[in-house]
Design a binder for these strands. Structure first.
Lengths: 154, 154
DNA sequence: TAAAATTGTGGGTAGTAGTGGGTAATATTC
DNA sequence: GAATATTACCCACTACTACCCACAATTTTA
């Protein structure tokens, strides 16, 4: 049983091989709707991780970027920073996508890797980096956190 | 796998040869729709880089320029500055386009070159110049940048 | 419980991509 | 018109990548 299409939950410990390939958990692939043509787009995450979008999800972002006028400097910077590290990756017969050296470096990935479902996208983390990030997030304002929870959780 | 037609993402380290030729990444060429007939238009970028447009994209700009009345001085200046350094370039059997000496000089290009996908166009940079530009862009108002991100990123 | 299918991981290989240089055709100059 | 320079087209080499097969471990099915 899978959740709604293009919805990802759960955490998986997988490994990155010497060719920069990483397996996408079977459950995630099964959740991916056919119009994605087995393709994800990998990009820099806002934390020190890699964001993996289903293709059609990325196309929305792409469309937003396309509408930004290049006459404004901040727009050019934003488009550059976003597009620069993004690249499509179709999984092979074994269900693996290829990560770029640039993104592997950005996320500080070694062989052991954590794959985290983020509902509409997927995150790829170095285990130690994620643990550190968890620690730092303890400092988030508990009241604001609770307020958010109230709106979301039933 | 390629994204939508005429969409460019990712960063590539390529080299400019002694004849002023530079390879267009295979992924970019594959993304180029057939009605471009393998042709790009190179022009001065707004930062110190070269902008490379798919031909049909440039034709839109050209059409906009055509509609500017030459009666206004500012219009004449704008048209002149835009058209002056623009020239079409069809890639050869190896996938290379030829840059003009004027544009190579403008972007301060040496042998090592960075090619950056900017969604609807391509930028060609000198690595050091791009690094400087990145530094300068750190000074952009973070609030405005975040606001932009909120609207674009999913 | 046994058999079959699926999943995650590793590695080999043919074809392609990026780079450099040569030569013929064209244009330019004297 | 001849000599020179410039451009366009062609060929060749190397490195890498996309694709293929293999296998162990786990899960599903009968």
């Amino acid at each position: 049983m899978t959740l709604t299409n293009n919805t990802f939950t759960g955490e998986y410990a997988y490994s990155l091989d010497s060719k920069g390939r990483i397996n996408i958990p079977a459950k995630f692939r099964q959740s991916l709707s056919d119009d994605n043509e087995g393709t994800f787009v990998i990009a820099r995450g806002m934390d020190s991780c890699i964001w993996v979008y289903p293709l059609i999800q990325w196309k929305e972002i792409e469309s937003n970027l396309r509408n930004l006028s290049s006459l404004s400097k901040i727009n050019r910077t934003f488009v550059r920073n976003t597009a620069r590290y993004a690249s499509p990756s179709t999984y092979d017969k074994q269900g693996r996508i290829i990560l770029t050296p640039s993104l592997i470096d950005y996320a500080g990935l070694d062989k052991e890797v954590l794959i985290v479902g983020m509902v509409n996208k997927i995150e790829i983390w170095d285990p130690a980096t994620l643990a550190e990030t968890d620690q730092q997030n303890m400092e988030i304002d508990p009241a604001a956190y609770d307020e958010l929870a109230k709106q979301i959780i039933l």
